[in-house]
């Protein structure tokens, strides 16, 4: 009797559980909210920025840029952005960070090389093109590529920093003469990058 009974009850139990399995439906929401007021930091005068330690969006790295560099709005992709001008023209310094290794060091350096018309490096050539810098417990891999952009000599000074779970890129790109003049300042700038 007991065995028969159990057999007849089991399908009901399974059916009841299956009915309960239905999940909560995702829906489009619509609401009205007062405009958000930006935090006071966003309204700080831009002139003070270049010589002040700049915390990044995630608060992971800080740095102090030379006073001559002009801070620009970081924009959608950048953690930091500076314009560097001299008589030879204007160069652009971008600081970006991405999760993971973003395809590896070689792929990223070859992407930079492509931007100034250079052929990609083979894996065996990678080490010979790298300089290393250790500062504040951080290890930078530094490259210096000279090529052409828009028919004029162009140069990229770059530093790649691997942090747990993310990669940071510091790229100074512009007319070859401007970038060459800023090489000592770029090296000094990297020395100011600090993790909390």
């Amino acid at each position: 009797m007991a065995r028969m009974s159990r057999r007849s009850a089991l399908p009901f139990v399974l059916a009841a559980a299956s009915l309960l399995t239905s999940c909560r439906e995702a829906r489009v929401g619509h609401y009205r909210v007062p405009k958000e007021t930006p935090p006071p930091a966003a309204t700080a005068p831009a002139t003070d920025m270049a010589s002040t330690a700049v915390p990044t969006g995630d608060g992971q790295l800080t740095w102090t840029a030379p006073a001559a560099w002009i801070a620009k709005a970081p924009g959608a992709m950048r953690k930091g952005s500076y314009a560097i001008r001299n008589e030879a023209g204007e160069a652009d310094l971008s600081i970006t960070a991405f999760p993971g290794d973003t395809g590896g060091l070689l792929a990223n350096l070859n992407r930079w090389r492509g931007q100034i018309g250079l052929a990609p490096l083979a894996p065996a050539e990678l080490e010979a093109n790298l300089d290393h810098l250790d500062a504040n417990g951080l290890h930078f891999e530094i490259v210096d590529f000279a090529g052409t952009a828009n028919g004029a000599p162009a140069r990229i000074l770059g530093a790649v920093l691997n942090r747990p779970g993310e990669t940071w890129f510091f790229k100074l790109m512009g007319p070859a003469a401007t970038v060459a003049g800023e090489k000592p300042a770029f090296a000094a700038f990297l020395q100011t990058v600090k993790a909390p």
């Binding site: 489009v28 009205r32 909210v33 405009k35």
Partner: peptide, 13 residues
């Protein structure tokens, strides 16, 4: 100028 009219679509959709 005062309010934002917000429409949100969950990632699931």
């Amino acid at each position: 100028a005062q309010f934002d009219d917000v429409f949100v679509v969950p990632e699931k959709l």
